[in-house]
């Protein structure tokens, strides 16, 4: 047991206690949390900074607004409903099309107007938000999944998670929806995470739960060796999210849209640690490399350059 702890330490694995105590508490000022906990505000901030996000169709703020949904989505057969304060994918409904009067989710379930209204009312009343506080629901563009990951996704849109430490991207993975995750790319819900070499944007091994895997459980294709397009743009977006929020330790979720390129889905002030298993590399080692060598005040382009040079896979102990 102690031996395992020693080995993990040697590999620079970051534990939850250390993440919370040494990084989140130190580098994420509480006052900035609302910027990322409210997805609507994040969206507005990103737009101001010229960072692309899925276009907003409308916001449902009150019980009364629920009736407006058909109007909001009249022009858009595909759309996404998302509680602004939700987390871990809870409460997100991705509508991929219509059959007759009913909505078809990306998982294939048909929902009538009434059950969608019920879902919206639950969301507004805070069923999916932390502490059950009143919430609003975002209606937004459904990301069109880029063919790059076709071989590695079961429905839904894969998203790319980049951990950014004081403006420097330090680790990345792509999250691939599975049948189990219902088309959502959240690891809690059973999506596969695949590590990405920060220097090249090429995928490494994957993780499902806590297990390391080499092939996608639904499509059976090998996970490693896929090059993520627009990789440099994604790193640039991720690095700039630091200036956006002032939070020193964040996870940036980016999706790759077929037509619009990389879009920021959300920012996370308490990003999970499974990314370490997907990369088979510890975060702590990279954090320490940054703390020793990086220039946190450099412009984003230089920070990205530093990351690509310092974090070429595999990163050896400092």
């Amino acid at each position: 047991m102690f031996w395992r702890a020693r080995r993990l330490k040697q590999e620079g694995v970051l534990g939850l206690n250390m993440r919370n105590g040494e990084y989140i508490l130190r580098f994420n000022p509480r006052s900035r949390y609302p910027l990322v906990d409210d997805k609507l505000r994040t969206k507005q901030l990103a737009l101001q900074a010229n960072i692309a996000v899925p276009p907003l169709y409308g916001v449902i703020r009150t019980q009364h607004d629920i009736r407006l949904l058909p109007d909001i989505v009249r022009e858009h057969p595909q759309f996404v409903l998302k509680p602004a304060h939700g987390s871990a994918g809870d409460g997100i409904v991705v509508i991929a099309g219509r059959s007759g009067s009913r909505y078809r989710t990306i998982g294939g379930t048909l929902l009538d107007e009434e059950s969608l209204a019920h879902h919206l009312s639950n969301a507004i009343n805070g069923q999916f938000s932390l502490g059950g506080v009143q919430d609003v629901v975002i209606v937004e563009y459904m990301v069109q999944f880029s063919p790059v990951f076709e071989s590695l996704s079961y429905q839904g849109v894969p998203d790319i998670r980049v951990i950014v430490f004081r403006g420097i991207p330090i680790m990345a993975m792509v999250r691939l929806p599975t049948r189990a995750s219902g088309g959502k790319a959240n690891l809690h819900q059973g999506a596969v995470g695949a590590g990405i070499d920060l220097a090249t944007g090429v995928t490494l091994t994957g993780v499902l739960g806590t297990e390391v895997i080499t092939h996608h459980p639904d499509t059976g294709n090998p996970i490693a060796g896929v090059k993520v397009p627009d990789w440099d743009t994604m790193l640039d977006i991720a690095a700039r999210c630091y200036e956006l929020t002032g939070l020193g330790y964040i996870g940036v979720d980016i999706v790759l849209d077929r037509d619009r390129g990389p879009l920021v889905l959300e920012l996370n002030a308490r990003p999970g640690l499974a990314i370490q298993i997907a990369n088979r590399q510890g975060l702590l080692r990279r954090l320490q490399i940054c703390e020793q060598r990086a220039d946190f005040n450099a412009p984003p382009a230089e920070r990205v350059a530093f990351a690509k040079q310092a974090f070429k896979h595999p990163v050896a102990a400092a």
């Binding site: 047991m1 395992r4 702890a5 080995r7 993990l8 590999e11 694995v13 534990g15 939850l16 993780v207 806590t210 297990e211 390391v212 640690l273 370490q276 298993i277 088979r280 590399q281 510890g282």
Partner: peptide
Amino acid sequence: ELRRFKGVL
């Protein structure tokens, strides 16, 4: 976590 992160080794 000792079990959870064993895959990193």
